[in-house]
Nucleic acid binder design. Structure first.
Lengths: 339, 339
DNA sequence: ATAAACTTCGAAAACGTTTGCGCTATAATT
DNA sequence: AATTATAGCGCAAACGTTTTCGAAGTTTAT
């Protein structure tokens, strides 16, 4: 039936609790004979150590937290999957939290993570996050943080990102080479590290080709889905409609598809679309979608690997370190050259 | 800096540990004055209670585990999202585990969940899972389990599912009404509750319309992605190619799309496709995909709600209960009637 | 005035581990 | 034979809480 503790084992075997404990951990202090007796009894009685008692003694929980701003998102879910894989190998447990793109939730959750609940944190920032006191406090209290994708430059720790500037530059260049001259950039948030890098890459490419850099072509889409949809429809209905859209995130590209469909604009004939995306169905869309795909799984795995590397040390203070992985530009129908 | 405990607070305020503890929990035994002093000091010194010490005392962890056979899967991720939402409201924490469709992993993870790590479990079974000893052991040890989608009929507890039989029947009927007479069913596993229900619905519909029930039209696709792809290609290249495919899970429909594309079969003209799916891009596919969509988010939320309802009792033994939610058939291009 | 009741707090046990140290018996060393 | 080393085990403290109980001191009732 229920819970069997060291005490129960000790009583059953008529030895002390410490003997049982040591036997189970294969201590040299215990004779082979009693060790085997204990092991056998433990298996038989279904003993499983209480993890929290151990945590209390050791100040180690063998648990890490994973904070993402969105759960139903192909990129983040692949990253989580990557982190989970290496955690499972290392016998670590993962607490998953959805911050829902809300700074307030992020702060509250981070607050719950001090004092030993987790040994470390892997996270991607909220689009609202502009101050980092809560994160610094956590680090100060001894819980290291590794960032991925949406990072805080201001915090000295390990960060796993992709080559956002270059990818965005390449993506924009790709559009230009396909004949586009008026490219709108759909942005998610001004405070986001990746968003800014991507904007810069976009602007730099425009600059290289001497294209009009009127900043009005950077469209902020930070509302909910329907809000964004109407923003995009408005854009596509405007007098001077752009001939291409560069969506900084996947969901904005999908909204663009929906908008185009709704008002009868043909992709790629009248509008070309490219975006950062980890959509598996990108090749199957109508038309198939040109994407810049980040190595999401590997990013999560890498973030976890770095974190664990530090956790294995006595006093885990993570040094500043930028790990930059490459995204891949995959041209498809949505940016096909038209005449 | 780091960790501040009750002892630290007590020392700073020159009162006893128990006074501090009681003050923080607003005990009637403590005067308003000292309570306020304690509260103030706690905030100032950044006190956060050590969760595991409390867990040890209370035999409650305020944590639940979520086990899914696949993480990069729209259905499961939406379910997780639903469960996470209600957990966050109830101030519970969620440990997420990926069983990778492997019985052995499921067993091992379940083994780690005894003895207090979690107060309860929400899970969907592996396609390999055929025996339930590990689950029964866990329940016996006092940790309740709530199943969703892929359930174990043999275990008496709460189960959240959808009307798989009816949905599958309706989906098959839909295909028949669109003119199909030779429908292949792509199955994932014989041991899976949902798979069997769906097969039965499919067969029942065939029966109703007096169609050929040769069981060879049930195709097992339990390999990896490339294996399944070649299985489907073989099917579509066979002498008597089916005129429709009913995929029991989303990924098999996507493989069907890929297979059709590869060997130049046009959907829906030459082949109609329907599947169970939570793909957000289903309307944007080429052609748009007819789906039977489960209320994944609500299922996860419902499972969590039921679990918490029981956890709030003293001795949480969950009664047998079948909660059945409705899926929605959304006809799209992939099953459009052709002449 | 004494007894009773109440208010406010502290001592200590308990949750289930791990581990340093001490104790006893036997084996090895002189 | 006397000493020392060693093997094998148990005691007890510690981790950070919560909570029962009792000890004061204070107020109210008789």
């Amino acid at each position: 039936m229920s819970k069997v503790s060291l005490r129960d084992l000790a009583k059953a075997l008529d030895v002390s609790i410490s003997t049982v404990s040591k036997a189970l951990r294969n201590s040299y202090e215990i004779s082979a004979e009693t060790r085997d007796r204990v092991m056998e009894a433990a298996r038989e009685m279904g003993y499983h150590p209480n993890p929290y008692a151990g945590s209390l003694r050791h100040h180690k929980s063998k648990t890490i937290a994973l904070l993402v701003p969105e759960l139903t998102n192909n990129f983040f879910i692949q990253a989580i999957s990557g982190a989970e894989s290496v955690a499972q190998e290392k016998d670590y447990h993962i607490l998953v939290y959805n911050t829902h793109e809300q700074y307030q939730k992020e702060e509250s959750i981070i607050g719950h993570l001090g004092n030993g609940r987790v040994d470390g944190v892997i996270m991607s920032l909220t689009s609202e996050t502009g101050r980092y006191d809560h994160l610094n406090d956590l680090i100060q209290s001894g819980v290291p943080i590794v960032f991925f994708d949406r990072i805080a430059h201001e915090i000295e720790t390990a960060k796993v990102t992709t080559d956002d500037f270059a990818s965005s530059f390449n993506g924009t260049e790709h559009l230009i080479r396909q004949g586009c001259r008026d490219i709108a950039f759909l942005s998610l948030s001004d405070s986001l590290s990746i968003d800014n890098k991507r904007k810069q890459g976009y602007l730099e490419a425009l600059n290289k080709y001497d294209l009009n850099m009127s900043s009005s072509r950077i469209i902020r889409c930070e509302g909910d889905e329907t809000k964004n949809l109407s923003t995009i429809i408005e854009l596509l209905n405007s007098e001077k409609r752009p001939d291409a859209i560069f969506a900084s995130v996947e969901k904005l590209a999908l909204s663009t598809y929906n908008a185009a469909r709704e008002i009868g604009i043909r992709i790629p004939d009248q509008l070309k679309v490219i975006c950062f995306s980890n959509l598996r169905t990108a090749p199957l869309l109508n038309p198939s979608l040109t994407t810049i795909t980040q190595p999401a799984f590997q990013m999560g795995a890498q973030a976890a690997t770095v974190l664990f590397k530090y956790l294995e040390k006595k006093r885990p203070v993570i040094q500043n370190e930028n790990i930059i992985m490459k995204s891949e530009l995959i041209p498809r129908e949505s940016t096909r050259r038209t005449t």
